[in-house]
Structure formats: structure tokens, C-alpha cells
Design a protein around this nucleic acid. Structure first.
Length: 268
DNA sequence: AAACAATCCAACCGCGATCCA
DNA sequence: CTGGATCGCGGTTGGATTGTT
């Protein structure tokens, strides 16, 4: 099949987004949603390709994006999930509300990869045969609030580009500040849908226990295999409905949560 | 103070998956 | 069923910023 030409071949703009472009995009999506990314820029009056708009929205402009340093909980979650899943960033991101796959990928490459390598070395040096770093007890994890910042993302790496240095990217684009969102979101709340702003609810409660979220499988789209499997498990139906493609299934399996019941599972 | 190195992260690119006529 | 259109993901890049010499 022939690929549609992208930005550079259509005379469309590339590079960093201006505050004005951001506002146009946010306003448009708020009013009309984003049914068709390819048509969106033309309809919204942006000289960008749909792909660029989608990236900008999903990685930066979505109102449920959680900014700031990654908490120890989050970093631990990423390490654990990456250990289980590999570079499946979007799947990992689905378990970290407010974090994007791109952000997680960046954090992995800049901080966590080193830590994972160090852990691997340690485990080799200790000559134990544990494949993974055991998760800390939940009680320990809960000692850290979501506002706790990790040693890696703040001081230990020099904090060269920590979010303290760049506290809020919106502040670097004059138009973007707290009032920006309140203006946009209050502009026409009647047209806002859960689909457009799926995480409006997320804003209230930050992120309490990532490990718990694995099991609850929140945040996945309706009808997803993960949700079905989690719902089934919650209802005690795991033995009758088992989604072997579900990340929760494999996570629970590999972390031993369901090991005791493994022999009772139906064949794949 | 200047030059260079290291780090960070937003954005781009290409590909496979999925949707739909 | 087929093939074009679109979406979403993961890898990579490049500019900006910060640290070091």
C-alpha cells in the first residue's frame, strides 16, 4: 500500500509547538473531539500533520497528563513492568495514570536503564539466582507520597533537566498557565465528554498505589481484554474467563499472585 | 568567561496493526 | 476478501540546557 505523504511533503510545519498552536489544538479537541487526526489540523486551522497533532495532544496537552518528577513508586513500577514486558511502553504507561509512553520511555533511557543494569550486576555479584528485583513491601511503598521525588530524577543525576529547573513547561510558553486550562475546560463544559477527557476524574486523586492498579486494571478502554480479565478475576471468575493476552494475567502470574492457582487454570 | 561534554526531553520517523468501504 | 486510509507504537534524533574543565 502507498503511504500518505507526511508533513514535510505537504509544506506543513515541523518542530516545536508554539503556545498559540497548543491553544488552537486544545480548543478544537475540546469542542469537537478528535475523531479523525488526519483531518483535524485542517479543520482546526493548524499547519501541522495529523500525526504531529496526535503526538502533541497525547504526550503534552492532554489535561490528565501528570507533570513533575517520577515518584519512587512510579520508577519501581516501570522497572518491574519493563522487566516483565520489555519495551512495551504504551502498556507500561497504561499502568501509570497521567504518564505517557514517551515520557516513560525517556525516563527509562535516561535513568532507569542504568539502575536496572546496576541491579542486574548486583544480583550477579551476589550470586543469587533471582531474575528480578523483588518489589518492596506495600507498606514501604506507601511511605512515599506521590509527590515524593526519586533520588534519580532529582539530585543524583545532577538534576540537569529536572522539572525543578523547568517546573512547568506551560510556564515557558507564556499562554500556558493554570488559568489556561480553567478557561479551556470551562469554555463549554456541556460538550465535554468522558471520551475527550477520560482522566478528568483522575485529576482529583493522584496515584496511590501502582501495584494495586495492576490488579484493578483501571484505565483500560471498555471492553478490553485486560478489563474483562480483571473484572472476571475480581468476580472470582478467573477460572472460567482467562485472557492469556492480558498483561494483568501475566503480571499476576509472574509475580506469584496467582501461582497457587496456576494448576487450576484452563489450558491455553 | 569560553569551550566542550553530558544530559534531558519534545518531536519526528517508519512500520505494523486495525478499520472500513 | 482486498486494499487504501488511519492509528498507535517503539526507536531515534536534535536542540536546549546544564555541568565540567
Amino acid at each position: 500500500m502507498v503511504r500518505a505523504p507526511c508533513c514535510e511533503k505537504m509544506g506543513l510545519k515541523k518542530g516545536p509547538w508554539s503556545g498559540e498552536e497548543d491553544q488552537i489544538l486544545v480548543n478544537y479537541i475540546h469542542l469537537h473531539g478528535h475523531g479523525n487526526w488526519r483531518a483535524l489540523p485542517k479543520l482546526a486551522g493548524l499547519l501541522r500533520c495529523g500525526k504531529s497533532c496526535r503526538l502533541r495532544w497525547t504526550n503534552y496537552l492532554r489535561p490528565d497528563i501528570k507533570r513533575g518528577n517520577f515518584s519512587l513508586q512510579e520508577e519501581h513500577t516501570i522497572l518491574e513492568l519493563h522487566n516483565l514486558l520489555g519495551n512495551r511502553w504504551s502498556t507500561i504507561a497504561a499502568k501509570l495514570p497521567g504518564r505517557t509512553d514517551n515520557e516513560i520511555k525517556n525516563v527509562w533511557h535516561t535513568h532507569l536503564k542504568k539502575r536496572a543494569a546496576a541491579n542486574h550486576d548486583d544480583s550477579n555479584n551476589n550470586n543469587n539466582h533471582q531474575q528480578r528485583v523483588a518489589p518492596p513491601p506495600a507498606s514501604l511503598l506507601r511511605q512515599y507520597s506521590s509527590d515524593d521525588v526519586s533520588s534519580l530524577t532529582t539530585g543524583d543525576n545532577g538534576g540537569a533537566q529536572s522539572n525543578d529547573a523547568k517546573p512547568d513547561d506551560f510556564s515557558s510558553t507564556e499562554e500556558m498557565d493554570e488559568s489556561f486550562w480553567s478557561e479551556v475546560l470551562s469554555a463549554d463544559s456541556s460538550t465535554s465528554t468522558d471520551h475527550d477527557f477520560p482522566a478528568a476524574e483522575l485529576g482529583s486523586g493522584l496515584y496511590d498505589d501502582p501495584l494495586a492498579s495492576f490488579v484493578s486494571s483501571e484505565g483500560d478502554g471498555p471492553g478490553s481484554g485486560e478489563e474483562a480479565a480483571a473484572a472476571a478475576a475480581a468476580a472470582g471468575l478467573a477460572h472460567s474467563i482467562v485472557d492469556y493476552t492480558s498483561m494483568d494475567f501475566w503480571y499476576n502470574l509472574l509475580t506469584g499472585d496467582n501461582n497457587k492457582e496456576l494448576s487450576e487454570l484452563p489450558p491455553i
